[in-house]
Design a protein around this nucleic acid. Sequence first.
DNA 1: CAGGATGTTGGGTC
DNA 2: CGACCCAACATCCT
Length: 262
Amino acid sequence: MPELPDVEAHRRTFAEHAAGRRVVEVTVPDPDVLTDTTPQGLGRALSGRRFAEPGRHGKWLLAGTGDGGPVLAVHFRMTGTLAWTAEGDVHDDDAVVLRFEDGALHVRTVRRFTEVRLIPAGDEPQDHLGPLGPDAWTMDRGTFDAVLDGRGGGIKSALMEQELIAGLGNLLVDELLWRARVHPRAAVAALDDRRDELWSAMREVLRQSIAAGHVPSGPTWINAQRGADDPRCPRCDAALRRTTVAGRTTWWCPAEQHLHGL
DNA sequence: CAGGATGTTGGGTC
DNA sequence: CGACCCAACATCCT
């Protein structure tokens, strides 16, 4: 599930239950999710420490321990979630469990691509996450323009590129392109006069998705038409088209979304 | 049973 | 170098 809005919801869960609390115990039912540490290393680094307010960059959840202490970084990939339970019982899909006095946070993953990293005390988180562009939600309009200026290729692949803009995924990009009435294969270079529409569509899609904690699938969202028996444009009722763009299944309205000059 | 799934990476191509 | 394409990762669902 996780795109930026889902991770933001997990960040809120983490903030509610873990910020300011002391870690009692760390267990790692699936050590494969640890890419740069071991269950013992993770336990040694976190046990007894208190978490600070968690942060997020793109699709990474960043849970620091304050005062330059180590940072727990979680990337949920496609099927990861974060759950709080008062009982702390280990679930089948649990990969990492952080126990506190009054319950536990469970990093869960079905397909087990989820990645949990331990950023050593004093290190910059950015140096451990691979190349990431500015966060899609917190960046400003000038940064958005700067990132697209001079970029070749298509708009969907650009918006999906985490090194360019961090946080947008397949659903969000289809949704915002539909709102901006821009064809997913439109060349970035052909969209100089559509930047306002792209920017406001991105802001609006992110604002509503973050409020919901996921990409909504209501009647005004193209996302809800994905895989429907007879997928239709929520605005004009045209039959939606399904193609592959940037390696991902892409839904778009052939009546409303244009190439803009190509 | 084959194919696809909201993500990323590494390899190869042009 | 810049952009594209595909396979692979592990598991579930249609």
